[in-house]
Amino acid sequence: MTKFVIVAILALAASLVSAYDPSPLQDFCVAVNYTDSAVFVNGKFCKDAATVTANDFFFSGLNIPGNIAASKLGSSVNLVNVDKLVGLNTLGISLARLDFASYGLNPPHIHPRGTELLVVMEGTLLVGFVTSNPNKLFTKVLNKGDVFVFPVGLIHFQFNIGQTNAVAFASLNSQNPGLITIANTIFGSNPPINLDVLAKAFQLDKNVVDYLQKQF
């Protein structure tokens, strides 16, 4: 009996530290930003089920290309997460449209709470991710109809190596997967990270670090 109790406690502890969105215990929990509701699930309050409509589960606009001309990197990401589609709350999924100019880049970044599944609709993308230890790169050239998965929490990127624009769609197994763009985070933090820290970490001259911080 003692062994059974110990195993049960360990199983419960393992479930409590899960990094993934919890499974819903109701049909839906449409998110609201006000606190009139007494039900609080997965970071959002639930709308009264009696007032829920079909529009709470609807989003329009992913047919529209992103504004890649306004991006220094030549890419645009339109993420449909729980903040844009309130019906996603507690369902553990989100979706994004990615547009790339020729040689446009979605720079190295992390989704701390979501695995990403990417499908290329148009164009040719060089994609890849790097494992945590050892730092091994897994990379692949994707063409129309190809699919690639980026494991949760790993640094990954997408780069249009074609002469024409590229389009891809990505699904993520979190209603709010989060985004940490490596360069922006390191060199664009507010307040800035100490010059000596970055110079030593990246083995760069302080003038180079200062230049990079000014870019972000």
Rank of each mutant, 00 (worst) to 15 (best):
I6V: 13
I9L: 07
I9A: 08
L10M: 11
A11I: 10
A11W: 07
A11C: 15
A13N: 12
A14N: 10
S18F: 14
Y20N: 14
V30Q: 00
Y34R: 06
T35E: 08
T35S: 12
S37Y: 01
F40T: 05
V41R: 13
V41S: 06
N42A: 13
N42R: 14
K44M: 15
D48H: 06
A50Q: 15
T51G: 08
T51C: 11
A54V: 10
F57P: 02
F58A: 09
N63M: 06
I64W: 05
N67F: 06
A70F: 03
G74T: 02
L79T: 05
L79R: 09
V80K: 02
V82H: 00
K84L: 15
L85G: 03
V86I: 07
L88M: 06
L88S: 05
L91E: 12
L91C: 09
G92Y: 01
I93R: 07
L95C: 04
R97Q: 04
L98D: 04
G104D: 00
L105D: 04
P107H: 02
H109W: 02
I110N: 04
H111P: 02
L117R: 07
L117A: 10
L118P: 00
E122G: 06
G123E: 01
T124P: 04
T124H: 09
L126H: 15
V127T: 06
G128E: 06
F129L: 08
S132K: 14
P134A: 03
L137G: 02
L137Q: 00
T139E: 11
K140C: 00
F148C: 00
P151E: 05
P151G: 03
G153K: 15
L154F: 03
G162W: 00
G162S: 07
G162A: 08
G162R: 02
G162K: 01
Q163V: 06
T164D: 15
N165P: 11
A166G: 09
A168G: 14
A170T: 09
S171L: 11
Q175A: 14
G188C: 05
S189V: 06
N190Q: 14
N190M: 13
P192W: 08
I193S: 08
D196A: 10
V197A: 15
L198M: 06
L198D: 00
K200Y: 06
A201M: 10
V208I: 15
Y211P: 13
Q213F: 01
